[in-house]
Deep mutational scan, measured.
Amino acid sequence: EPLWIRPDAPSRCTWQLGRPASESPHHHTAPAKSPKILPDILKKIGDTPMVRINKIGKKFGLKCELLAKCEFFNAGGSVKDRISLRMIEDAERDGTLKPGDTIIEPTSGNTGIGLALAAAVRGYRCIIVMPEKMSSEKVDVLRALGAEIVRTPTNARFDSPESHVGVAWRLKNEIPNSHILDQYRNASNPLAHYDTTADEILQQCDGKLDMLVASVGTGGTITGIARKLKEKCPGCRIIGVDPEGSILAEPEELNQTEQTTYEVEGIGYDFIPTVLDRTVVDKWFKSNDEEAFTFARMLIAQEGLLCGGSAGSTVAVAVKAAQELQEGQRCVVILPDSVRNYMTKFLSDRWMLQKGFLKEEDLTEKKPWWWHLRVQELGLSAPLTVLPTITCGHTIEILREKGFDQAPVVDEAGVILGMVTLGNMLSSLLAGKVQPSDQVGKVIYKQFKQIRLTDTLGRLSHILEMDHFALVVHEQIQYHSTGKSSQRQMVFGVVTAIDLLNFVAAQERDQK
């Protein structure tokens, strides 16, 4: 057995438009009618409502009807409940999964919650491996369901041993009777949507819809739904939504950006999952974080739909894509998950301010006199920076000697690579993860907040409520011999709460 199987392995699926269902090699399930009293909570997966979006479509000038398939009504709160249950049931049916076995899954959280929910009911041990950027709410729900959680670096490539995929496979090879159901490759993922989600949409719309818009992560949702719609409703256009920084969209030119990270969760990847059939997507749109969270908040405030950030991405694209539809036509959007997962993220004004998705003037509360002053007023001194090749031991000596707790790590040209902190280095040394002679590049981390000289002290204040420091950066445009230009970030300084307090105190003292 291989040590790991690539999540982007070539698909062996034989589905073709027009091929009889009787030739399918898979076990198919028909939607079942729910009894009045459910035998367990797993029976509350599927049969989610279709809700008309009344205000947002009109606000953006849509002539067509805009409908939302509300997947956050599933038992675990997301569309991923469907595939989690289906993968477990299919693994039980073919004898792969037996009582007492362990389920391991690399996930952005929602599939993990679905699997942990099913594992709690069915009696399996469950280990979820997820990147650090995923919300604390997801972690809390997983723990409450009895799952064990392993976190991995957000910026690790999918084929790196440190990625959530790599760590999951390492655990599988170490733990007896453990299984990775593997949402990236498992046919049960798109089949769950082909058999149930798509049929529900067709039934709820009486077979009449002209466009379907869905955000894409593993691709199982859009693949399964689109294949069924292509068979039953061939005139329906399928629109895929991919965040900026991901590479799922086609044509490839759409993916060209210097951005590699994004805040919206559960969609987009740096590889093409095996289950994603991009041939059934008629057109791709890219979405960005700001519009995703703005539209998610709009869905909550104006439509009462308590959905997550990827739902915002989907609707932001839908109001663009559906401009081509006329009166009497219908566009369906998939709202994948609930706001429950993001209470401390985009639902929080403070978080939105820190990330730059909300401006101070958007909030009406009274601010102190210094709130709208610029960061450049602080008069920061030149920063202490270190090269990635310097040793951890030497870096600790320098920081202690100069009285700093942290320093930016830059390359020879001064471009920011990340940050090192005294606390992080000492804990890594004590844990045996690094040696004093190791290069400081081994303990770089990139989960820090950046701020510009033109940003306000109010925004800085919000950042420092949650973080010990902020890195002050400025952009530099560099022209190359080819005539092309590129933008790079340079370090201007490091600012802490002490710097802000000293500035405010000094100004008030001078005024007296």
Rank of each mutant, 00 (worst) to 15 (best):
I239M: 15
V241L: 02
P243G: 06
P243W: 02
G245Q: 07
G245F: 02
S246L: 04
L248P: 02
E250L: 11
E253C: 07
L254I: 04
N255L: 06
Q256Y: 09
T261D: 05
E263N: 06
E263Y: 11
G266L: 06
I267S: 04
G268M: 02
D270E: 09
F271T: 02
F271G: 02
I272N: 04
L276G: 06
L276A: 10
D277P: 06
R278Q: 06
R278F: 04
R278E: 02
T279F: 09
V280L: 14
V280S: 12
V281Y: 08
D282Y: 15
K283Y: 09
K283R: 06
K286I: 02
S287N: 07
S287P: 06
N288L: 10
E290A: 05
E291G: 02
E291P: 05
E291F: 09
E291M: 15
E291H: 02
F293W: 02
F293N: 02
T294A: 14
A296P: 02
R297M: 04
M298C: 11
A301G: 12
A301V: 12
Q302A: 04
L305V: 12
L305I: 08
C307N: 02
G308H: 02
S310A: 02
S313G: 08
T314S: 14
A318S: 14
K320E: 09
K320W: 02
E324Y: 15
E324S: 09
E327V: 07
Q329S: 05
Q329A: 12
C331N: 02
C331A: 13
I334Y: 02
I334C: 06
L335W: 02
P336Y: 05
V339I: 02
R340C: 02
M343V: 09
M343W: 02
S348R: 10
S348W: 05
D349V: 08
D349P: 07
D349G: 05
R350D: 07
W351Q: 02
M352F: 02
L353C: 09
Q354V: 06
K355M: 11
K359N: 13
E360H: 05
T364D: 02
E365M: 15
E365A: 11
K366T: 14
K367H: 02
W369S: 04
V375I: 12
V375P: 06
Q376C: 14
E377K: 15
L378T: 02
A382G: 11
A382V: 13
A382T: 15
P383L: 12
V386Q: 05
V386C: 13
L387W: 14
C392F: 12
T395C: 02
T395M: 07
T395A: 12
E397C: 07
L399F: 14
K402W: 02
G403W: 15
Q406C: 10
Q406V: 02
A407L: 14
P408Q: 11
D411M: 09
D411Y: 11
A413I: 09
V415H: 12
I416K: 02
I416F: 08
G418F: 09
L422N: 09
G423S: 08
G423A: 06
L426A: 15
S428M: 06
L429F: 13
L429V: 11
L430S: 12
A431L: 15
G432E: 10
G432H: 14
Q435H: 13
Q435P: 10
Q435Y: 15
P436V: 13
Q439C: 11
V440C: 13
Y445N: 07
Y445F: 10
Q447I: 10
K449F: 09
K449L: 15
Q450R: 02
Q450F: 12
I451L: 15
R452H: 14
L453P: 13
T454W: 14
T454S: 07
D455V: 11
L457C: 15
S461T: 07
H462S: 08
I463M: 13
L464F: 09
M466Q: 10
F469N: 15
F469R: 05
A470E: 02
A470C: 02
L471Y: 12
L471P: 14
V472H: 02
V473Y: 10
Q478A: 10
Y479H: 02
S481I: 10
T482V: 10
G483A: 09
K484I: 14
K484E: 11
S486L: 14
V494S: 15
V494G: 06
T496K: 09
D499R: 04
L500E: 02
L500N: 08
F503C: 02
F503A: 09
V504L: 06
Q507A: 14
E508C: 11
D510C: 13
K512G: 15
